[in-house]
């Protein structure tokens, strides 16, 4: 199994397409850094006239957080396209039959590919996080993190660099989970159909459709929304504390935002992964 996984990772990174996401991430981080350098006053917000921030919010941690909240979202749509090709592309190229006439259980082949998809999503998140951290630190220095979580409703929380780094890591981990909800749908579809592009684009199409549905103002939508992964797709941005424990004065873990997201994404991933594996083990390889 380890041998298979090693080969899958090797093969993934021998191709051109997977690097597009790294390139997109680099470009977007570069643009964002340039923008932040151009307009430093934008990062000294006056919160409704109640508070004047003195000094400069910008540093490596701040940029890393800003990237996760804004541009990294694009990766959530792009990742399934690349991930869908990991399995669907094999069928389209005819290499699947060459692999499956080898004495390996099919579930092992599938699992190696799925694990590679996870590693790829995690590597994209890690790359984006480390690059934004490095560029931000180089351009603006290092220091405390001033959190601007979308869940804070106007509140600003200032964390030590250590706390900030931990929550940034949590946020990027949740972003990987979100990426893999769409990614798992793409892998599941790739287990069904022998096509390089269709599984990825169909998965993205499904994600967007569900997001549109989540945005509709109907009673039934409100009822199903909490169970749809698309409702939590960008909630990694809410993985920053928004309050202190009044007794201990320590930052409170944002469980109300994190746990529902983790639960729904995990259920989605397990559901689609099981369906994909079930299909792959039983399917006729006619390509």
């Amino acid at each position: 199994m380890i041998v298979l996984l090693r080969w899958e990772i090797y093969r993934l990174h021998r191709r051109f397409a997977p690097y597009l996401l790294y390139a997109a991430s680099t470009l977007l981080i570069g643009l964002m850094t340039w923008g932040m350098r151009q307009d430093r006053h934008a990062f000294r917000p006056n919160r409704g006239g109640q508070m004047e921030i003195v000094g400069d919010l910008r540093n490596g941690l701040f940029e890393c957080q800003a990237v996760s909240i804004t541009i990294a979202m694009l990766l959530l749509y792009l990742a399934p396209v690349v991930i869908g090709e990991i399995l669907g592309g094999e069928g389209a190229a005819g290499t699947l039959r060459t692999m499956l006439v080898r004495p390996r259980p099919r579930w092992q082949v599938w699992l190696a590919k799925y694990a590679t998809a996870w590693l790829y999503a995690a590597s994209i998140a890690a790359f984006t996080m480390l690059l934004s951290l490095a560029i931000g630190t180089l351009c603006f220095g290092w220091g405390k993190l001033t959190s601007v979580s979308p869940a804070s409703e106007g509140k600003i929380i200032v964390m030590t660099a250590g706390e900030g780094a931990r929550y940034i890591l949590l946020s990027y981990s949740l972003m990987t989970l979100s990426m893999m909800s769409g990614g798992t749908i793409a892998v599941a579809l790739g287990s069904w159909f022998d096509n390089a592009l269709a599984p990825g684009f169909t998965a993205v199409g499904l994600v967007i459709t569900l997001q549109i549905i989540c945005g509709m103002n109907f009673d039934w939508v409100e009822k199903v929304k909490p169970y749809l992964f698309s409702n939590y797709l960008f909630d990694h941005a809410k993985a920053y504390p928004i309050a202190f424990d009044p007794d201990s004065g320590r930052l409170l873990f944002p469980g109300a935002a994190v746990w529902p997201m983790v639960r729904v994404h995990c259920v989605t991933i397990i559901l689609f992964a099981t369906a994909g594996l079930w299909r792959f083990v039983r399917r006729d390889v006619t390509c």
Partner: peptide
């Protein structure tokens, strides 16, 4: 076994393809 037209990973060398398929066997 070789089933119908042989399909390989074009971006890898012939040897690498064989090493990969060999690793699937043992």
């Amino acid at each position: 076994a070789q089933v119908e037209a042989p399909s390989f990973y074009g971006y890898m060398t012939g040897r690498r393809n064989l090493e990969f398929l060999g690793a699937l066997t043992g």
